[in-house]
Design a protein around this nucleic acid. Structure first.
Lengths: 202, 202
DNA sequence: TCTTTATTTAACCATCTGGTTAGTTAATAA
DNA sequence: TTATTAACTAACCAGATGGTTAAATAAAGA
């Protein structure tokens, strides 16, 4: 193995991600991360100078996993309506499969150090001009009511993301058990799409 | 003052809430809470046995502040459509004014101890039967498409709550500064209502 | 083989953290 | 006034936590 270096470093990142998803930045313990891969705590400091450096790097990886290429579809030249359905499809899939990353990312962005926000800005390259133009065009053709693209994105992301973020919240509020919640989520994708499409077409 | 007891205890709860909103359960420090009200750390243990006991009590208070009487409007006998507008109105107001409570509550429910979930169940008494009946009726009259009440509630809460929860997320994603985000949020209430109404009436 | 470099560990340290204790001060009751 | 209770503090403790260091082991190069 020519780069056991990289392997071990990645192994640490992976273990750190698990720990961070479960306990957050301040709850995460370097000792616990080390234990989980059968390594000394000093090993972590061999590859990462400080806990914050490790956490920042893991956040970068987490944010990429969660959001990478997700916004791309909005930048394509496909017609608006299919595009929207495609986006909702991709978003629900992504968030459903990375529900635990969601809370971590939101948490970090809201209460983490400044570095986290900088990393997000660095990794975000969404360009809204295409969608904006399409929405203006569609509005002037009376296909849809005039809306800002940011509000459309907000609606889509809210509908797709929150049910996964607020799992415990919804389960409690709506008195559902895990099985009921699963079946509830299954229907979400179609409902989110319906909701957006009907709103636009009104 | 007949109950300086109660005053001091509440003072501690208040300071603890600030600390918890800013740093979460594992990041919160009893010393910091004590310092903020000019009191010894031992004082906290005089009124609360453990940190967890204090945190649980503060969560109870926070959840009440955030959700109390919010679901009541859905249980009223008012006609569905006005009722929905009323709910969205109340929800947006509530979440806008307690955005910091939002993350704390969601965070605690998702990663906090079991006790937190029990407290939520204990405080939640939402009864969906009225809304369910109304939706069935409206559907059989072809006023709306048939939908589950849980999906309606999920849509409403997602649209009203997430923009406040994901402030840093949206600001980063949509490249908005604080001022742009403020103006973006101002339009949310109407948009959320529009979105829901048009979806139902489709 | 021998030397150098990269990987890994055991032991350690200073500081922090939740929690305890013994005692002090202030209020209340007798 | 004095005894009793409630409110409060200073000092302390044990364990945890992030981080360091010196040495050991493994790998690679000469």
């Amino acid at each position: 193995m020519v780069d056991k270096n990289t392997d071990r470093k990645q192994e640490i990142r992976d273990a750190a991600l698990s720990e961070l998803k479960a306990k957050g930045r301040s709850g995460a313990r370097l000792q616990s991360i080390a234990d989980n891969i059968g390594v000394t705590k000093a090993m972590i400091h061999y590859y990462f100078n400080t806990k914050e450096e490790l956490c920042d790097e893991v956040f970068r990886e987490a944010y990429r996993q969660l959001m990478s290429s997700l916004m791309d579809v909005l930048e394509s030249d496909a017609p608006v309506f299919p595009k929207i359905e495609q986006f909702i499809d991709a978003a629900v899939d992504r968030f459903a499969n990375h529900a635990d990353l969601l809370l971590f990312v939101i948490q970090e962005l809201d209460t983490g150090p400044q570095s986290v926000n900088e990393i997000m800005v660095e990794l975000t390259d969404y360009d809204s001009t295409v969608l904006e133009r399409q929405l203006e065009e569609a509005a002037s053709n009376y296909e849809i009511a005039p809306i800002e693209s940011s509000q459309l994105v907000a609606n889509m992301i809210s509908l797709c993301m929150f049910p996964y973020l607020g799992k415990a919240f919804f389960e409690g509020l709506l008195a559902m058990d895990d099985e009921a919640y699963r079946s509830f989520l299954e229907k979400r994708k179609d409902i989110a799409a319906d909701t957006i499409i009907n709103w636009l077409a009104s």
